[in-house]
Design a binder for these strands. Structure first.
Lengths: 143, 143
DNA sequence: CTAAACCCTGTAATCGTTACAGGGTCAAGC
DNA sequence: GCTTGACCCTGTAACGATTACAGGGTTTAG
């Protein structure tokens, strides 16, 4: 049959492992596919595109739950688009917050690393710093 | 006895939950503490500082394995400090790579969000973009 | 006919933390 | 004494997304 792919070929075409594809199916992001008499899954072009949609969402850092919501919107073309905008905007804010936090961590770690002048562990400023900032840190909420 | 704390008090003093403390012990980051006759764990000041060390490392984003290595260095003051520098530097590079990736994602997502002009899902550019970029994306390795 | 490559299901691992269940201990108040 | 609530114990399972099995069946090429 034309345009009917087994899971392995779908995997190579989409860059998504067979395990993940089966996982998405179990979670309800993919419809249950047709099966051969022996039980092999067979996918059509629409399924390929749906998997591509999921992978692109994942590559943007969206979680599977958000992707599922976006797919549901896509499945109901008459619904309002605002929900999609909400999901994307929320995720963008989440990303920006995470970037800010990681940048703060990197800055602190850069300081720590610069203090190391070699020598023995007993004098190591990296280790000392981890001990020193300890309690103050949880009080300041700098974690 | 003086300076002997039960796990709950250690938790409030360090900002680390009792579950995590027991977890660290099971993983070997904390020595097996003294026990009361009834089996309650009792901790001294040194244990408090060790837990603080772990929490500070975690707040910097270090994984428990790296923290364990740093603790091992700290436990052997005569070993060379270079290993600590390696761990911290490696983690810093890891952080910087993650920041760069997240920034790229945020930039792409910002573009996607801006394309949304409201309306029906059928016309939604967010959903369209997720479909469109799909296959090209995995080929370009932009994930 | 056989070996490799594929597919199936179900389970467990990863990481760090949290949340139970089911039970024991200890203080204060009645 | 007896109860209530706040602790503590152990062991197990959950979270999210993916990977890695085990143990078995199927297809395809040599």
């Amino acid at each position: 049959m034309k345009n009917a792919y087994r899971i392995g070929e779908v995997a190579t075409r989409t860059g998504c492992s067979p395990e993940s594809i089966r996982h998405y199916e179990k979670l309800g992001l993919l419809p249950t596919p047709k099966r051969s008499e022996q039980g092999y899954r067979y996918y059509d072009q629409a399924a390929l595109e749906r998997i591509g949609f999921i992978r692109h969402g994942r590559s943007l850092g969206l979680d599977l739950h958000s992707i599922q919501e976006l797919l549901a919107l896509s499945d109901h073309p008459d619904t309002d688009c605002g929900a999609a905008d909400d999901i994307a905007t929320r995720h963008l804010q989440h990303l920006e917050a995470r970037i800010a936090k990681l940048q703060a961590l990197a800055a602190e770690l850069r300081q720590v690393v610069q203090q190391c002048r070699g020598g023995k562990a007993a004098d190591c400023q990296i280790i000392q710093t981890l001990y020193d900032h300890t309690l103050a840190c949880s009080e300041r909420g700098c974690g």
